[in-house]
Design a protein around this nucleic acid. Structure first.
Lengths: 156, 156
DNA sequence: TTTCTATTATTAAGTCAAGCGATGATCGAG
DNA sequence: CTCGATCATCGCTTGACTTAATAATAGAAA
C-alpha cells in the first residue's frame, strides 16, 4: 500500500511515472520563479546552451510545443537579452536563435536549481538505482525522439 | 547523442522522464478511444476497482485534479452505467461512488490495453531494468502521496 | 525565367479545459 | 443550536493550445 494510494491506481506504472514527471516540473517551476523564468524558458536555454543555433521550428519539435508558441517564448527571452535572433543566411526564412552570455549565465543558475530539485526528489534512491533509472528512461525514449522529430504540427 | 536531441536537453533528467510520462499517456489515450473513454476515466475506474467506495473529493486528491472536474467525470461514467452514486449514509454531503459490473468489465479491458502500451514503450528494457525502474519510481513517489493527499484544492 | 508548391515565422481568432469564487447542504465542535 | 469546515455543484474567468490566414523565402518544375 503506497502512501494510501489505492492499489488499482498505484499498480498502473504509467500513472506513477507520469505524476513523477509532473511533480518534478512543478517543483522546478517554483524554484525558477525567483529567476523570473518558467520551465519552458529553461528548457529552451538548455537546448541552446549546447547547440550553437537552432530555428524556432526545431526547438518546437524537441519540446513538443506548437511552433506558434515558440514565437512568444523567444520574444520573452530576447527581450531580456537571454538569446538573440538573426536570420539564417543560408535560409532567410528561418531565424538562427542563439544564446547570449547573459543567457548562458542564467541557464547555469537555473540548471543548478534543476539539479537540486532532482537530487531532492530522487533522494530516496541509491546512486546505483538513479543511474539505472536515468539510463533506462533515456533508452526508452530513443525511438520516440527518432520518430517524433518529424512533426511540423500536432494533430487532434 | 540521444536521437538527435540536443545534449543540453537530454541531460535534464526530469525532462526525459516527464516526456516519457506524457508519451505513455498519449499512447494510452489513443488505445482507449475504441472503448469510448479517456485516460482519466480509466484511472477513476482503476481506483474504484480496488477501493470499495470513494468520495469525489478523495478521487480528485489521488488524481491531482480539481474536485470540480470530478463532477463531470463521474457524470459521464454514471451515464454509461460504469459507476453509480449513492449518498454516503454516514455523511450525507458526500457521495459514495462505486463501480458497477459493467465498469469492472470495461476496466479489465482498458487495463489490458494499458499493459500493452506499457510493454510496448518499455520494450527496450530488460525485465530486470523494468522492475528496478518501477520499484524506484514507486519509492520516489511515496513522500509525494503522503504529503499531497491532504490538499482539497490546488493553489496558484 | 516564370510559376507552383513547401517551409518558416507571425498574427489574430477561436476552442477548450483548468482553476477560482460562490452557493447550498450537511457535518462536527463547542 | 450557532459557527466554522467540508462536500458537491454551478458559472465565470483565465490562460493554454489550436486553427486559419498572411507574408516572405526557398526550391523544383514548366
Amino acid at each position: 500500500m503506497r502512501g494510501g494510494l489505492p492499489e488499482g491506481l498505484a499498480s498502473v506504472a504509467g500513472f506513477q511515472l507520469s505524476k513523477c514527471g509532473w511533480w518534478l516540473e512543478q517543483r522546478l517551476e517554483e524554484e525558477l520563479q525567483p529567476l523570473g523564468i518558467r520551465v519552458r524558458h529553461f528548457l529552451v536555454l538548455a537546448m541552446l546552451s549546447t547547440s550553437g543555433a537552432l530555428s524556432q521550428q526545431e526547438m518546437a519539435g524537441y519540446l513538443l510545443l506548437d511552433p506558434t508558441l515558440m514565437v512568444g517564448l523567444v520574444d520573452e527571452l530576447e527581450a531580456r537579452g537571454l538569446c538573440e535572433r538573426t536570420r539564417d543566411p543560408r535560409d532567410r526564412r528561418r531565424y538562427s536563435v542563439r544564446i547570449t552570455e547573459d543567457g548562458l549565465a542564467l541557464h547555469h543558475r537555473a540548471r543548478a536549481l534543476a539539479d537540486e530539485v532532482g537530487a531532492d526528489v530522487f533522494g530516496p534512491l541509491t546512486d546505483d538505482e538513479l543511474r539505472t533509472v536515468v539510463k533506462a528512461i533515456g533508452r526508452v525514449m530513443e525511438p520516440f525522439w527518432a520518430e517524433q522529430r518529424v512533426r511540423p504540427r500536432r494533430k487532434r
